[in-house]
Simulated scan of single mutants.
Amino acid sequence: MKKILKILTILIIPLMMFITIIELNRDSISYYTNKNKLYSFFVFSVGNGLFTLIKQDDKSIIFDCGVGIGSNDNRNEFPVNQLSQIGIKTIETVFISHYHYDHYSSLLSLLKKYNIKNIGLPVNRKYKDILPKNNHLNLLDYQENYSFMGLKIFNLTYYSKDFFQIKHTDQNDYSAVFLVTMGNQKILMTFDSLDEELRNNYYLNSMKNKMHVDIFMAAHHGSDNSSSELLSKHFNYSTVIISGTNNYGKWKKYSGHHYFPGERSYELFKNKNVYLTGDDNREYTKKNYSYEFSLFNNGATKLYSYNNKIIDY
């Protein structure tokens, strides 16, 4: 009997250890609380939507807070729950790039859980009704530069003023483009911007040389009608993150019936390190993950992937 118990102990304990390790890797990764990190940039896996943020200690700035259209009524809670998991206690500011629901669908859930200080809305502010009445948010002026948590946020589309004087029916035409300086790293946040609003952009047209950015966020979930190709003429980069997915399997509920990335985008990025948050039948550096790009106090950087995604929520 003792021999049997000994054998069972030898078999069961390693199995318990293995299960615990898998659970830790999936749900409570220890590097979130690493005190050597200066900043972390997160891109959550939310289908054909966008939810990104920059974290410093337990504070954050959020750049769009939407998820891909799905049938699950609780889908907007997924990224909000992720914030708790990575240790976010304070949200300094939320920026909404444009008025498409897949870019702000979780806003009300955020407001219920967090006392958000500031909000930045797109240039066409007539849709302020996405905010609850009697809110205490400080509505930021639409301006060229913002600074929060030591971050420098340059609003590149501030120089597309002439284009915004014309009334547009597609809300993507009003999408922001931000160049975010995070310590010694630069992140180009393209949101759902299209070529037309940037073609006569004063800032881009005055650039004499290409600028290097460390992370290039593919525009419009990697669609073929996005501004990615135009912006690639002005910026050098080797790492691309695409918040998008195809319309197959579990992802179908969160795709909005779109197949992203498109063929032209795939060809544009084929020699880059490409990280896809959803799924696709083509080859990428990684796919089906959320991502964290971290800058450490010593200037080093690292890109992590972790297996938290909306289809498993």
Rank of each mutant, 00 (worst) to 15 (best):
N72T: 08
K112Q: 14
Y259G: 03
A300D: 15
V80E: 06
T245S: 13
Y306K: 02
A219D: 02
N134E: 13
H103C: 09
G222A: 01
I91V: 15
M182V: 08
Y313G: 15
K117V: 04
P14T: 09
L198K: 05
E267K: 15
A176E: 14
N209R: 07
T157R: 09
I242N: 00
G183Q: 06
T33K: 15
Y104F: 15
L194F: 01
F293M: 00
N281W: 01
G278M: 07
E283D: 13
T93Q: 03
N209P: 01
V80W: 06
K233T: 08
D312P: 02
Y31Q: 10
F44G: 05
Y313H: 12
K250Q: 10
F51M: 02
L83R: 10
Y39S: 09
S228E: 03
K167S: 15
D57P: 00
T190P: 05
T245I: 05
E197G: 11
G49W: 00
G47R: 03
H257S: 14
K126Q: 11
N184A: 09
T33R: 14
Y291K: 02
M211A: 12
V180E: 00
C65S: 13
P14S: 08
Q165T: 13
Q82H: 08
I62K: 11
D129P: 06
K167W: 01
K208Y: 02
K286H: 12
V177T: 04
F260H: 11
Y32V: 07
F235G: 06
K128D: 10
N271S: 12
W251I: 00
F95W: 05
N138H: 11
K117E: 15
V46P: 02
K35Q: 08
N124Y: 13
V240T: 10
M182A: 01
K250D: 14
Y127V: 00
V180S: 02
L230T: 02
R75Y: 09
I119S: 03
F260N: 14
D58L: 04
P14Q: 01
G47S: 03
I241N: 01
S106L: 07
T93Y: 06
